[in-house]
């Protein structure tokens, strides 16, 4: 057994708002797995996802300042949100490549940058740092019989040389984690398609169309539920699901879980601690049917 794992933690704005259950389940799961998690003091918005379309220097500076704050806490930086992950990694990548931009940003945030801290998505921590074996050993209640469609969305693996998370077009890291906790994963076509993310506010029509294709494909593949690792994807797939069902006159009824909720469930955490009650598509009937509650 290696020494205790310790991370600094950047929850991101969504996890303090609409995705409170992601934050809650993350903290509870890490506690359960004895992984240290210290919230970055005084962190603020990373700018995802509009800032980089409007002002590159601003978007880089927002992330750079957060990275600088994170350096004050011991351990690699754990990130839960795929969009924050993407922005923070992009910032590291861009500033490592360009001295000019780095100097501009250092001036903007009025601090020198080290940029040598690692930014890790929760998935990487579970699958690689903790490791699938140790994860499997922590399972108290395997998710037997639960058929999960793992949804990656677009930002976790793309662009590959920035995120460097897994194979860009055919990743398996989510499936690996879920199999380790005893669930069944389905093979489906839309794991990597975009859900529309924050167009949910400005162009809901686009989002409804894109998200419908995702839900339809998951349902066709025989999934009981969908698992995500991003609050934006979650918002579109979960909160919008009822509306989509109305628009397309279909009935999906697919609960959408955060990865930490499903893994937490397998590790024996209660529904309350995982914030399962906060999900819009009620997961309780499914979980009861599968005898997981």
């Amino acid at each position: 057994m290696k020494d205790k794992l310790n991370y600094s933690y950047y929850p991101g704005c969504s996890l303090h708002a609409s995705a409170g259950e992601y934050d809650l389940s993350t903290r509870e799961l890490f506690k359960q797995l004895s992984i240290g998690l210290t919230e970055v003091p005084d962190w603020f918005c990373c700018g995802a996802t509009p800032a980089h379309n409007v002002d590159e220097l601003l978007s880089l500076s927002l992330c750079a300042k957060n990275l600088e704050l994170a350096e004050q806490v011991e351990g690699d930086l754990a990130v839960a949100c795929a969009a924050c992950f993407s922005r923070l990694k992009t910032t590291q990548h861009v500033l490592a490549e360009s001295d000019v931009k780095r100097k501009q940003v250092e001036k903007a945030i009025d601090a020198p940058l080290k940029l040598d801290g690692k930014v890790k998505h929760l998935l990487e921590i579970l699958a690689r740092d903790l490791g699938l074996e140790r994860l499997a050993a922590s399972v108290k209640k395997p998710l037997a019989g639960l058929k999960v469609a793992c949804y990656y969305g677009c930002l976790l693996t793309r662009p590959p040389d920035v995120t460097n998370l897994d194979c860009v077009e055919a990743p398996t890291i989510m499936e690996d984690v879920l199999k380790a906790v005893g669930a069944e994963t389905v093979a489906w076509s839309h794991r990597m398609e975009c859900c529309g993310a924050n167009f949910t506010l400005s162009r809901p029509g686009v989002v409804i169309q894109l998200t419908n294709a995702i839900l339809e494909s998951a349902k066709e593949a025989g999934a009981d539920c969908v698992m995500v690792a991003c609050p934006l994807c979650h918002g579109n797939l979960d909160i919008r699901q009822k509306e989509i069902e109305g628009v397309y006159s279909v009935n999906y009824g697919l609960p959408v879980f955060y990865i930490t909720q499903l893994v937490g469930l397998a590790c024996g955490l209660s529904a309350d601690k995982l914030g399962l009650g906060a999900l819009i598509v009620n997961p309780m009937p499914l979980l009861k049917e599968k005898q997981l509650l």
């Binding site: 077009e169 055919a170 990743p171």
Partner: peptide, 17 residues
């Protein structure tokens, strides 16, 4: 199809390997 890890040539995951 999927190529061994670290290989210079990559497969097409987007075409189902």
């Amino acid at each position: 199809d999927e190529k061994p890890k670290g290989s210079m040539i990559k497969g097409y995951g987007e075409f189902g390997h």
